[in-house]
């Protein structure tokens, strides 16, 4: 089997990047920020669950929902499937590749052995595109990898059928009946509605702007969860990873969303969104400062309660700004 001619580009985020790449392959010109924005991807949450070794933050909606929301709001149909039987999943994947159909799949990032081992963690919500097969290896286009690469059949199977929370269960997807041109206006409005609702009105104290406030309040309690200073330093470093490096486009997805607003402003002639995108870029700069501050105190092991409270204050200031920002954004679509 040969490789499908596929234009590989790195993307900020794996799910929005994979959806964008699949649509671009089928001839629909759409950008990653547009996919992210229409799906209402921007979010914030602060979680401490038995499934996590440490309190954790996330800045995007639930994995899988970028694809689901985008498809629903634009009417572009994606064929999706999950499997119980790995052999059947593999057979159907091979058959689609035979038909020159690139396929998006969900995997546990840990088994993607084309990345160095220090970089790989168990997270079941990584998305990539399979574009071919050569002997016992699959050819993949992964948005986080600079070039098209390959992965052994066994590693891919392990990744697709890893257990645990949000297990992929062999999930795969590909678009069907992709139009060459599409009016995204309705999707943009719905996407903005979702984003403002998620950030302002979900009645849970750990989600949206309330989640940012909780993060600000609770960070000074982190030492009690750590077994020693080394682990605390490691977890503080991870704030930077979660907000900057782990597929966010920087500033905890805020830059990506600002880019969406700017594109939408031009598309729908809404200058107020252009102004709001500038404000969101500034908010993103603040998140970047938080990431850098966290890295610095992590490195110097200056992790006493006063320093963590200082970090909490920086985070709290973001909550105030985001509250005003999303309220103003909501008014533009009221």
């Amino acid at each position: 089997m040969s490789t499908i001619p596929f234009s590989h580009v790195m993307a900020a985020h794996c799910e929005s990047g994979t959806v964008t790449a699949l649509l671009n392959f089928h001839g629909l010109k759409v950008s990653e920020p547009m996919v992210f924005g229409i799906s209402g991807g921007i979010f914030f949450g602060y979680m401490k669950t038995p499934m996590l070794t440490f309190p954790s933050v996330f800045a995007r909606i639930k994995p899988g929902h970028i694809l689901k929301n985008f498809s629903k709001r634009t009417g572009i149909e994606f064929k999706t499937r999950t499997y119980k039987d790995p052999a059947k999943a593999e057979m159907e994947l091979d058959s689609l590749l035979e038909q020159n159909q690139p396929v998006g799949i969900q995997v546990d990032f840990f088994y993607m052995d084309y990345f160095p081992s220090w970089y790989r963690v168990h997270i079941n919500v990584h998305f990539l595109t399979v574009i071919g097969k050569k002997g016992d290896k699959y050819i993949v286009s992964d948005c986080y990898h600079p070039v098209i690469t390959e992965i052994g059949k066994d590693s891919l199977r392990k990744g697709r059928f890893a257990g645990g929370s949000m297990a992929p269960r062999g999930f795969m997807c590909y678009p069907v009946n992709v139009p060459k041109d599409k009016d995204f206006s309705k999707g943009i409005i719905t996407g903005i509605k979702t984003a403002t609702f998620n950030m302002l009105r979900i009645p849970m104290p750990f989600l949206g702007v309330k989640g940012i406030r909780r993060f600000a309040d609770k960070i000074s309690e982190w030492p009690k969860y750590a077994r020693d200073t080394e682990q605390l330093a490691h977890e503080i470093f991870k704030i930077n990873v979660m907000l900057e490096d782990q597929g966010t486009g920087g500033g905890g997805f805020r830059y990506l969303y600002a880019s969406f607003l700017r594109e939408a402003a031009q598309l729908m002639n809404r200058p107020e969104w252009h102004e709001l995108s500038g404000r969101l870029m500034d908010i993103g700069d603040g998140w970047r400062e938080i990431s850098l501050f966290a890295s610095r105190i992590g490195k110097s092991r200056d992790l006493g309660v006063p320093k963590l409270k200082e970090l909490g204050k920086l985070i709290s200031a973001r909550a105030d700004l985001e509250y005003c920002f999303f309220n103003d954004l909501r008014k533009t679509i009221a």
Partner: peptide
């Protein structure tokens, strides 16, 4: 990594760069 940043022509777009 890919980060989004303000470019010289006042647009916001993707920039491929090393991880800070």
């Amino acid at each position: 990594v890919v980060l989004y940043a303000e470019k010289s022509d006042n647009t916001i777009g993707p920039v491929q760069t090393g991880s800070y």
